[in-house]
Amino acid sequence: MNKFLLSAEGLNKSFSGFKAINNLSFYLETGELRTVIGPNGAGKTSFLDLITGRTKPDTGTLNFENNDLLPMNEYEIYRLGIGRKFQTPTVYTDHTVFENLYLSLGGSRGVWNSIFTRIKPEQKQRIEEVLEIIKLTEKAQWKAGALAHGQKQWLEIGMLLAQNAKLLLVDEPAAGMTDEETHRTGELLLSLAGKHTIVVIEHDMTFVRQISKNGRVTVLHQGSVLCEGSVDYVQSNEKVVEVYLGRKAKTV
């Protein structure tokens, strides 16, 4: 019907009078790596909440591959192929790294299946591949709770990879990482672009510049899109400079 993988139109959402999302429209093409930036409270995380079904918009439409997302709940949306990494690392702390990835692998999500299924060699192989990518092979049997902050972030990205999601929603992947880790995360995301469609929310402008070399950047402000374009365009946009980059624009 339309060429966009994800299209959001006229979204509104308020929390006890506070308008978190204000007439937001957003379109995403397949294979894109989109970076979303914006000051605190611009509605970035709220937007992801709406896409993933965590909260429902007051008005507006949300479509993913011609599926109406509004009547769906979290796990139904997930099963369409939308994966999310949360702002604060959210992994199963009492499970091992291996188990975390195992739970994220594609396949049946039914209760009976979960009781009678056994891990298959190809599943094991896929997990090992992902472990390789996120560089946690040695820590496969560690409890996820025992990992360092950056490693948890990576594990959560690994869970998205294991899921083989079509659309990856990545909320502040570089938060709490060292510069080197951040750089590697950027490379990882860049290597995934094309195979997956990715939305990255980020604050760190160095990181944003790194990952949006070829992609587009969307700036959110007060719950709606302020401007959209290449990173250079966005950074030189006066409105953006005014509301967000202000002081930063000169230092970056």
Binding site: F15, S16, A20, S46
Partner: peptide, 10 residues
């Protein structure tokens, strides 16, 4: 319940 205390808390 009757009165939901809405919040943005995650």
């Amino acid at each position: 319940g009757l009165f939901v205390t809405k919040s943005r808390s995650l």
